[in-house]
Design a protein around this nucleic acid. Structure first.
Lengths: 203, 203, 203, 203
DNA sequence: TATGAATGAGTATTCATTCAT
DNA sequence: AATGAATGAATACTCATTCAT
């Protein structure tokens, strides 16, 4: 006899748990969130959570890892559609511009994301995962800049590595600012974007 | 009855505990650090810690608050000695340039600092403290820029508020980058400093 | 409505579950074995197990009880075929000689059996069952010895009760030895058998 | 400042906990006994137990290991005082004769002891401990018999190894019998002792 | 009948905090 | 002031059992 519930059913429950966990983690942080909390929010019992995930940390990891993967895929597929290097970098800026934290919820998600980063920094096991993700994103820009230089779009004097770091510095800087201060996230980031593109553009 | 030990004695013990706690927190994070850990590192017993601080969180707060206060005082007194606005802002950049995380230890301290920020974001009680601190630092630059504009040092078209945010965005961005990626903290920050000063300087 | 499946079908499933449970219990012990374990080994689902047995303990009990019953029947029917008391007792020894634990599996079964004994000792409910079983086996020998004495096969000075106890003491002793020590189970038991028979035989 | 409580105080608490644990384990078995149970019986809180022992299993192990060690020492020192091999073996029998389980309590302790044996059989970690203990006790008799043979006390045809096994088989057999059946532990064991000594004695 | 998702009681263990000495 | 033993609340995780499908 085939399984009593469909694959979809299980998949949806998993998603439900992940979504609930995301909300809990965002609101209270990973440590302060209990498995019961996640259960309550998803309308399940504590025990049921363990039918879908091995541990609280597994949920945390799946959650952030899935987001990362989704982002990677998104970016890769969109990059494929774009021709010029400048437009690719512009596109990346736009992703973060759209995230402008107008609501508390989004701030919470940003906090959650950075907390996960720190969590990884302190975990032997997760450090590699973190590094790999970091390198992927860094190389993405580095290579785009290199291509732009070859294509004559981007100034030859630009240090691809340095400007790749600068890009993420801007994103991190703006994100963090938006947490702790009343901050014109959107305006500042847009301005930073223009400045950045102006700098690298071939004169 | 006079106090059995001098005020200095207590003051020194407090400092010792704070220093030990800083090391523990930096290494393992706030949650993973036990009061016993702090005790062991400071050569005191678990119980004694409570003669000097009300709770583990009180130590955490005092620690970060003290650092903040020290910074505030430092900056204020140094600002008083400096005449030009540009040199004041340059001085602020230099503070962070000197923090270049050449050792793991400094990275840990940066992580600790941001974790504390997130901790505050989730605490009704500590949020105000966080905001006040943020505003102080923000205004510091805003006012300095305003003064520079009046003094004819800084371009009149510069939006003081925006550039104040930009300053801290740079600092946050560079700090975070230095945690998760191999990163030329010093080089990037110096470059950012020059770029920033160039932008605001009256042409 | 007639039963959907035949009685045989159910009977066979029950046997399958019991056999699987025996293997699991022997390998991991009663407590460490989960109902899922039994399910997996028997190719059934956790839930199905409960269609055949009321609880994990019921399986445990049925398992050991069935073994006991089977033994009882076996012994009784074989005793009926044997004429002399000596040959009956010899036959009993042979049963255990055949169990010589040449493989780890048999050791596991022995452990399981004693664990069950201890389990019963601690259960008000099961204690009687244990006692009854003990008495049956004890009386079996006691009566055989009495008959042997009457028939002139066995020495009249032999205390039937004492020697019944001695018989089981030998079996228990040899079995336990075989668990915890490298032990010549077969050789020792054969020697013990000969010694025992020699002692009781009429001179 | 020296520790606030004397070494004796701690030592006594440890003993208290061990004694309480022994009673709990004997009554309910290792698995069914909760750490709270041990706490309640010793008048301590659950948490305090962990000030003295690392885990429930550590208590279990310490308890049985300590008994084993005490026995080893006892036996060794007494053996040193005894001249003849026969008297040594007689002494060993007497130890177990004195343990005659006249009370339920003693039966419980026997059960506990064997449960621990089984516990060890299923634990990679504890198996060696068990084996070592087994070998010590086995060799004790083996060597004593060898010495007796050399001294002309014990029959030269006696297989030392076999009779060492036989000795422990008797002890195990009698002990186990005493658990599950109304049993003349004392009488049977005394009889077994005499028979055993008679067999090995030089004619 | 068969399934396995859902449940929730139960347990070992940790740790901030208190307090007697 | 210093100590560390005592406390007990808190929490992740397990698993026998139930029940809707």
């Amino acid at each position: 006899m085939p399984p009593i519930v469909s694959k979809d059913y299980k998949e949806n429950k998993k998603k439900l748990i992940l979504q609930s966990a995301l909300e809990c983690f965002a609101q209270k942080g990973f440590v302060a969130t209990t498995v019961s909390d996640i259960g309550k929010r998803s309308g399940l019992s504590k025990g049921s959570i363990y039918n879908y995930f091995d541990s609280k940390e597994a949920i945390y990891f799946k959650l952030l890892n899935a987001t990362t993967e989704r982002n990677k895929t998104d970016i890769t597929s969109n990059f494929a559609k774009l021709r010029s290097s400048i437009s690719k970098i512009s596109f990346l800026f736009d992703i973060y511009l759209k995230l402008a934290p107008i609501e508390a919820k989004q701030t919470e998600t940003i906090v959650l994301f950075y907390e996960f980063t720190f969590h990884c920094v302190r975990s032997e096991k997760l450090l590699d995962f973190m590094r790999e993700r970091g390198n992927f994103l860094l190389n993405l820009i580095k290579e785009t800049i290199e291509q732009g230089k070859e294509a004559g779009e981007i100034d030859e004097n630009i240090d691809a590595n340095l400007y790749a770091h600068k890009f993420w510095m801007i994103i991190d800087g703006v994100s963090l600012q938006s947490i702790s201060r009343h901050f014109h996230y959107y305006d500042v980031l847009r301005e930073m974007k223009e400045m950045y593109l102006e700098e690298i553009r071939k004169k």
